[in-house]
Amino acid sequence: MDPFVVLVLCLSCLLLLSIWRQSSGRGKLPPGPTPLPVIGNILQIDIKDVSKSLTNLSKIYGPVFTLYFGLERMVVLHGYEVVKEALIDLGEEFSGRGHFPLAERANRGFGIVFSNGKRWKEIRRFSLMTLRNFGMGKRSIEDRVQEEARCLVEELRKTKASPCDPTFILGCAPCNVICSIIFQKRFDYKDQQFLNLMEKLNENIRIVSTPWIQICNNFPTIIDYFPGTHNKLLKNLAFMESDILEKVKEHQESMDINNPRDFIDCFLIKMEKEKQNQQSEFTIENLVITAADLLGAGTETTSTTLRYALLLLLKHPEVTAKVQEEIERVIGRNRSPCMQDRGHMPYTDAVVHEVQRYIDLIPTSLPHAVTCDVKFRNYLIPKGTTILTSLTSVLHDNKEFPNPEMFDPRHFLDEGGNFKKSNYFMPFSAGKRICVGEGLARMELFLFLTFILQNFNLKSLIDPKDLDTTPVVNGFASVPPFYQLCFIPV
């Protein structure tokens, strides 16, 4: 058959498939802009700032609406009420993970971030239990974070109060905490193996944040037939998995079943207990991918939040002064901060919360999916439909947070200066898919920041009023603009 005829037939089939998918069930789905064949609503979305586009569309179609990214149908949730109703009140029905062709290629359905069903539930339950087990290797997770915080302070001392970009050092600290939990080992910041790991993690975040990856996920045929950065992403992930597998083999040879040292040991012990169960989800494949998931999810998000926190503290020296006064009063100079201190430091706690609220790190979270046909607000959402959640619409709700575009710790303080919780605080998402490392991340943010401010004054290279804190939105995360500062020993 003539190649031209084959091409026309293929394009015609794709067009018909697109029209059929977009028209099927439209009477039951939430409203939304009319999609174009094949490309859907992509032309109506700013790929570099999806969150802003969703906010604009919500003003037209309401808090629940339908979009098509290519052939992929998505239902968008915008605003606290619908997000709570879906992710919390109907948590089980909305607990699936959205379709990610690239991740599915890399992870093969294993791990904790992109798995679904029984596998996801069992691996998540085990990971939560293990991360909360403060007795691994007779050292609590808090001990590990405190140790890394001391190392971080010593690295900052080496800058000798000269101007520096904190990106690298602030990236090393949370990565080392995860390494300590998974591998029972922290690395020197100049260790070549550690630097290679950091390089792969950072490069992957840069790649994932590009519009090209959005295109690959919406048109998965590209993955096999086109060159691009997605190939580098898959190569980096394969490198990390190979490295983790080597460490798993080392653990198998040296493990003491009665004295687990780290996450890998705990997983291997669980595998041993379930070795007679042919349906067990505790396999080497799941261990390797879960460890890679924890490394990827637990490094860049925390380091970016820390980097943004220091920029905001530079911009608002009056806030920094209040935090340091609270540190001096509650902790002093002669001991290290600990998590028990947080309950006695409402202002510092409010500042950490406000940093996370203000920066809105992951504006749309990772997409969910419905696990069955769901009736939601008089609409029928078919099983498997991807759910896109606007966390921006919750964290920047102007009824809950007056002047949401302003950095103001009073958003989390009552009139008496006591810490005030808010149900709208969802930087880790909400419901059954809430970030498994939430507790660890909150511990790291509090301890790293208090250790830094206990030991250093922060000095800006320019007038604080002239510092730009506008986030650089890159399609996946909101990151701070480049800046330098000086760490002046107190």
Rank of each mutant, 00 (worst) to 15 (best):
residue 182 I to Y: 02
residue 347 Y to F: 05
residue 64 V to N: 02
residue 48 K to I: 03
residue 253 E to K: 13
residue 271 M to E: 03
residue 297 A to E: 08
residue 233 L to R: 04
residue 175 C to F: 11
residue 276 Q to W: 13
residue 210 T to K: 10
residue 192 Q to A: 14
residue 288 V to N: 05
residue 428 F to P: 01
residue 431 G to Y: 04
residue 75 V to Q: 00
residue 393 S to L: 01
residue 222 I to W: 13
residue 299 T to I: 07
residue 391 L to V: 04
residue 237 L to Q: 10
residue 5 V to T: 14
residue 319 V to T: 08
residue 42 I to L: 15
residue 113 V to Y: 07
residue 463 D to L: 09
residue 270 K to Y: 09
residue 370 V to F: 02
residue 398 N to Y: 14
residue 260 P to L: 05
residue 263 F to D: 01
residue 181 I to N: 02
residue 80 Y to I: 08
residue 430 A to T: 13
residue 145 V to G: 03
residue 189 Y to M: 06
residue 167 T to D: 04
residue 16 L to F: 10
residue 64 V to M: 08
residue 380 L to A: 09
residue 271 M to V: 10
residue 430 A to H: 06
residue 437 G to D: 03
residue 416 G to S: 15
residue 152 L to I: 10
residue 435 C to D: 03
residue 216 C to F: 14
residue 272 E to Q: 14
residue 207 I to A: 07
residue 108 R to G: 09
residue 9 L to D: 00
residue 94 F to G: 02
residue 371 T to K: 13
residue 103 A to T: 09
residue 132 R to D: 11
residue 266 C to M: 10
residue 265 D to E: 04
residue 343 G to F: 14
residue 417 G to E: 08
residue 152 L to T: 03
residue 342 R to T: 10
residue 30 P to M: 04
residue 30 P to E: 01
residue 120 W to H: 10
residue 324 Q to F: 06
residue 21 R to Y: 10
residue 368 H to Y: 04
residue 145 V to A: 05
residue 13 C to Q: 04
residue 404 P to D: 04
residue 446 F to A: 02
residue 133 N to D: 13
residue 361 L to S: 05
residue 229 T to V: 14
residue 225 Y to L: 13
residue 78 H to L: 08
residue 293 D to S: 05
residue 130 T to A: 11
residue 290 T to W: 05
residue 350 A to T: 01
residue 68 Y to Q: 12
residue 174 P to V: 15
residue 323 V to N: 02
residue 439 G to L: 07
residue 43 L to I: 07
residue 84 K to C: 11
residue 50 V to R: 07
residue 323 V to Y: 02
residue 401 F to Y: 13
residue 299 T to Q: 07
residue 341 D to N: 05
residue 274 E to P: 05
residue 304 T to G: 10
residue 244 I to S: 02
residue 433 R to D: 03
residue 93 E to S: 11
residue 353 H to V: 03
residue 188 D to L: 08
residue 207 I to K: 05
residue 222 I to R: 05
residue 382 P to Q: 05
residue 185 K to A: 11
residue 360 D to L: 02
residue 230 H to S: 06
residue 65 F to K: 00
residue 143 D to N: 09
residue 183 F to E: 04
residue 456 F to T: 03
residue 72 E to H: 14
residue 386 T to Q: 09
residue 429 S to M: 03
residue 232 K to E: 07
residue 252 Q to A: 11
residue 311 L to I: 09
residue 486 C to L: 07
residue 341 D to F: 07
residue 121 K to F: 09
residue 57 L to C: 08
residue 354 E to T: 02
residue 292 A to V: 15
residue 178 I to N: 06
residue 182 I to R: 02
residue 118 K to P: 13
residue 96 G to N: 09
residue 166 P to I: 04
residue 261 R to M: 06
residue 426 M to T: 05
residue 83 V to C: 10
residue 138 K to S: 13
residue 475 G to S: 15
residue 141 I to F: 12
residue 355 V to C: 12
residue 77 L to E: 00
residue 78 H to D: 02
residue 362 I to G: 02
residue 444 E to V: 04
residue 41 N to W: 00
residue 359 I to S: 08
residue 99 H to F: 12
residue 404 P to C: 07
residue 206 R to L: 09
residue 167 T to F: 06
residue 340 Q to F: 09
residue 386 T to A: 08
residue 258 N to D: 14
residue 435 C to Y: 01
residue 430 A to G: 09
residue 348 T to V: 08
residue 129 M to N: 15
residue 16 L to Q: 02
residue 70 G to L: 04
residue 393 S to G: 04
residue 211 P to G: 10
residue 83 V to M: 14
residue 16 L to S: 09
residue 466 D to V: 12
residue 247 K to F: 13
residue 399 K to S: 14
residue 477 A to S: 11
residue 399 K to T: 15
residue 3 P to G: 12
residue 467 L to K: 05
residue 81 E to S: 10
residue 434 I to V: 14
residue 348 T to Q: 00
residue 476 F to V: 15
residue 13 C to N: 06
residue 243 D to V: 15
residue 73 R to L: 04
residue 117 G to R: 05
residue 141 I to E: 06
residue 43 L to C: 10
residue 60 I to P: 04
residue 351 V to M: 12
residue 463 D to I: 09
residue 132 R to S: 14
residue 159 T to N: 06
residue 444 E to L: 00
residue 152 L to R: 01
residue 213 I to S: 12
residue 133 N to H: 11
residue 62 G to D: 00
residue 94 F to M: 06
residue 411 H to L: 02
residue 70 G to Q: 02
residue 234 L to R: 11
residue 110 F to C: 12
residue 262 D to W: 01
residue 134 F to M: 15
residue 422 S to Q: 03
residue 264 I to Y: 01
residue 155 E to N: 09
residue 65 F to V: 05
residue 287 L to F: 02
residue 264 I to G: 01
residue 263 F to T: 01
residue 314 L to S: 07
residue 409 P to E: 04
residue 238 A to R: 06
residue 229 T to G: 10
residue 73 R to G: 06
residue 71 L to F: 15
residue 99 H to N: 13
residue 222 I to M: 08
residue 179 C to G: 07
residue 329 R to G: 09
residue 115 S to M: 02
residue 216 C to M: 12
residue 444 E to S: 05
residue 183 F to V: 04
residue 252 Q to S: 10
residue 205 I to V: 14
residue 64 V to W: 00
residue 332 G to R: 04
residue 330 V to Y: 07
residue 470 T to A: 15
residue 219 F to M: 11
residue 314 L to H: 03
residue 176 N to W: 00
residue 319 V to D: 05
residue 108 R to V: 04
residue 239 F to P: 04
residue 458 L to R: 03
residue 233 L to H: 08
residue 34 T to Q: 12
residue 126 F to Q: 02
residue 52 K to Q: 10
residue 479 V to R: 14
residue 87 L to E: 03
residue 185 K to Y: 05
residue 359 I to F: 06
residue 424 Y to H: 14
residue 94 F to A: 02
residue 41 N to R: 00
residue 252 Q to P: 02
residue 138 K to I: 09
residue 485 L to H: 01
residue 434 I to D: 13
residue 333 R to S: 13
residue 115 S to A: 15
residue 247 K to T: 09
residue 452 I to Q: 04
residue 333 R to M: 11
residue 370 V to R: 00
residue 354 E to H: 01
residue 177 V to P: 01
residue 433 R to Q: 03
residue 400 E to K: 05
residue 479 V to Y: 03
residue 4 F to V: 14
residue 107 N to Q: 14
residue 243 D to T: 12
residue 166 P to K: 01
residue 173 A to K: 02
residue 79 G to P: 00
residue 73 R to W: 02
residue 240 M to I: 06
residue 257 I to Y: 12
residue 156 L to H: 01
residue 122 E to A: 13
residue 269 I to C: 10
residue 248 V to M: 05
residue 387 I to C: 07
residue 257 I to N: 09
residue 109 G to A: 09
residue 247 K to R: 14
residue 305 T to Q: 02
residue 305 T to K: 02
residue 272 E to P: 04
residue 449 L to Q: 03
residue 258 N to M: 11
residue 421 K to S: 15
residue 404 P to S: 10
residue 123 I to N: 04
residue 6 V to S: 11
residue 255 M to N: 05
residue 186 R to T: 08
residue 408 D to P: 00
residue 357 R to S: 01
residue 216 C to D: 05
residue 30 P to D: 00
residue 119 R to A: 10
residue 398 N to M: 10
residue 322 K to S: 10
residue 226 F to A: 11
residue 69 F to R: 09
residue 219 F to W: 12
residue 18 S to N: 11
residue 416 G to I: 12
residue 22 Q to Y: 15
residue 216 C to I: 14
residue 83 V to E: 03
residue 246 E to W: 15
residue 137 G to R: 12
residue 71 L to P: 15
residue 176 N to C: 01
residue 58 S to I: 02
residue 209 S to F: 07
residue 324 Q to A: 08
residue 184 Q to W: 07
residue 168 F to G: 12
